[in-house]
């Protein structure tokens, strides 16, 4: 029973760390998906008297991914009804070219300024509309969200580090006497440490299994996915193969690190 309790305390510590890792991964994925959504929906409108090719636009700034010409019909559709067909034809020929510019990533306000200035410098460009105000608000919100996640990650790191330290002390207390007794009868270091490493591997496997079961259950329940769907974010909450493997690697790495520290820190009692 005592041995089970000892196992449980380490397993729970590892499960907490794995849980934190996966929650952080989910948050990162959600932010990335949201940023990607913003990038898709965001564009800069350019008005130019001369035709500008996509290649020319791309040469203006590295963030410019593609450009599309907005059809004159689209520009004129609101005033079409009140004008004669011949006037519309005349107006079409006189109208400047309208371009919608798509970027390769969601830009910062400084990058928008740089892109706007680069486009403005081109001969024939009369106006560049970057919708700066609404963009800035969204960008600042995203930045805030990222910082909150970062603070949360640091907090989790500190807490889990303390948990690990506590576990290390418990393990040291539990295993020092046995390792000393084994040393008195001439056991080599690998044999003295074998029990410790076996326990470390077993606990890591059990902790990974528990964490995987919880996250698979969470995916099946579907609550988080439906909440994210509402804001248009579609992400993988838990990928049993990739995320499970990352969890296993982290759990094994942590517990083996713990065991190694105990073995290295072990001094024979005199």
């Amino acid at each position: 029973m005592k041995s089970f309790k000892n196992h449980l305390s380490l397993i729970m510590a590892i499960v907490t760390i794995l849980f934190s890792l996966q929650i952080f991964t989910i948050t990162e994925r959600a932010i990335d998906a949201y940023e990607s959504n913003l990038k898709e929906n965001y564009s800069i409108v350019v008005v130019s008297e001369k035709k500008i090719s996509q290649k020319t636009f791309q040469q203006m700034h590295p963030l410019i991914k593609k450009s599309e010409l907005i059809s004159a019909d689209h520009v004129l559709k609101n005033i079409k009804l009140q004008m004669k067909q011949t006037n519309i034809k005349l107006l079409k020929t006189a109208l400047p070219k309208f371009y919608r510019i798509h970027l390769s990533k969601f830009p910062s306000p400084d990058q928008i300024d740089a892109i706007t200035n680069a486009i403005k410098e081109h001969v024939g460009v009369t106006r560049v509309e970057s919708f700066e105000n609404s963009h800035n608000t969204t960008y600042k919100l995203l930045l805030l969200f990222k910082q909150v996640v970062l603070v949360l990650a640091i907090f989790i790191f500190v807490v889990t580090s303390l948990l690990m330290l506590k576990e290390m002390r418990i393990w040291q207390f539990q295993h020092t006497e046995r390792m000393s007794i084994m040393a008195l009868f001439g056991a080599p270091v690998w044999l003295r440490s074998a029990v410790l490493f076996r326990l470390a591997v077993i606990d890591a496997l059990l902790a990974t299994l528990i964490a995987c079961i919880v996250f698979v259950g969470m995916v099946n329940y579907g609550w988080i996915e439906s909440e994210l769907d509402v804001i248009g974010i579609h992400i993988t909450i838990f990928d049993l193969f990739n995320d499970g493997l990352s969890m296993l690697m982290l759990a094994l790495g942590l517990s083996l690190f713990l065991a190694t520290m105990i073995v290295l820190g072990h001094k024979e009692e005199v």
Partner: peptide, 25 residues
């Protein structure tokens, strides 16, 4: 050397006042 000491200890039997048994075994 530690290796040589381990080999020597395999030929010794040690008994302590407080027994020093491994309690979880």
């Amino acid at each position: 050397a530690p290796k040589k000491l381990n080999l020597l200890r395999r030929h010794l039997g040690i008994v302590f006042q407080n027994y020093r048994l491994v309690n979880e075994w």
